[in-house]
């Protein structure tokens, strides 16, 4: 019944490592060489180039790019909205996961599919989809296009599955006997939730929140049509990077991109740490 198609990054429930691993032979060594070359050409060298361009531009131009009024506003808006959306996801995502795992009602399976839609939809289509209900010509008469709320709405849409899909499997595997033990010791439902269930879910919620924040910071496609990219008002960091690229200022683009990259790498490392901690706890 549950169609957990979209495995969320940050393998919270990753398996133990296989017991025996071998040293590299000729074929596998060659394979590793080719794979590393490809990975370097595709990912490592280009990402290094972003940082190198920033460093090459010098500290002053880095500061100048980031203190540029328009850029600073864009970064602030991005961080604010990402934090806000992450907070909403922590609550709503956990609630949705709870309903999916612990509640039984007709049509619950359909919810499971609906949750995958934001992952499946191309981001540009996501923007279009939200415009249909919340844009000009909205059947609700709500038009948030080209406002700050549009940024929030787009981010809420694209980040929705993260917390749900990290919490759901953990909730499914949660042993009921700890809850029963708590109940037998006289704990109320609320106490059990707060003292027994929530601590078990916390790493998964944290992982989902981290992913959701990272996605918020990096989002571009869904905002293009929806937010109008108004400088100082609805322009986000990724749009700023694109504007710099289009204006032929790669150094400034790289400066903003470096900040975004730092957030991305921090989140990945954080997830790695979280995952190891969960694995240790067994």
């Amino acid at each position: 019944m549950s169609t957990v198609v979209t495995r969320v990054p940050g393998r919270v429930a990753r398996r133990r490592r296989s017991p025996r691993t071998g040293a590299l032979g000729v074929t596998s060594g060659l394979g590793l060489g080719v794979a590393m070359l490809w990975f370097s050409l595709l990912v490592l060298i280009p990402l290094t180039a972003v940082v190198a361009t920033t460093v090459g531009g010098g500290w002053d131009s880095f500061v100048a790019a980031l203190t540029n009024e328009q850029t600073a506003a864009a970064v602030r808006l991005t961080v604010e909205q990402s934090l806000l959306v992450t907070a909403v996801n922590v609550v709503m995502g956990t609630a949705i996961a709870w309903v999916l795992v612990r509640d039984r009602f007709w049509g619950r399976a359909a919810l499971d599919v609906v949750i995958d839609i934001p992952f499946a939809l191309p981001t540009i289509v996501a923007g279009l989809v939200l415009l249909a209900l919340y844009g000009p010509g909205s059947p609700l008469g709500v038009d948030v296009a080209n406002t700050g709320s549009a940024v929030f709405l787009a981010l809420a849409f694209v980040t929705l599955p993260f917390v749900v899909r990290t919490v759901q499997p953990v909730l499914e595997e949660l042993e009921h006997d700890a809850e029963e033990a708590a109940a037998s010791l006289g704990a109320t439902g609320l106490t059990t939730f707060r003292r027994i269930i929530l601590p078990s879910l916390a790493p998964a919620i944290a992982a989902g929140a981290a992913l959701s924040f990272a996605r918020g910071i990096s989002e571009y496609g869904s905002l293009v049509l929806l937010s109008g990219n108004l400088p100082l008002k609805t322009e986000v960091a990724s749009v700023r990077v694109l504007t710099y690229v289009e204006n032929g200022d790669p150094a400034a683009a790289a400066a903003v991109a470096t900040i975004m990259l730092a957030v991305a790498v921090t989140v990945i490392v954080l997830l790695d740490v979280l995952q190891r901690r969960v694995a240790r706890r067994g």
Partner: peptide, 14 residues
């Protein structure tokens, strides 16, 4: 895993 959390715009720039 890094490509999962890097902005597409940063990928393009890189």
């Amino acid at each position: 895993d890094v490509p999962l959390s890097v902005s597409p715009v940063v990928v393009g720039l890189a």
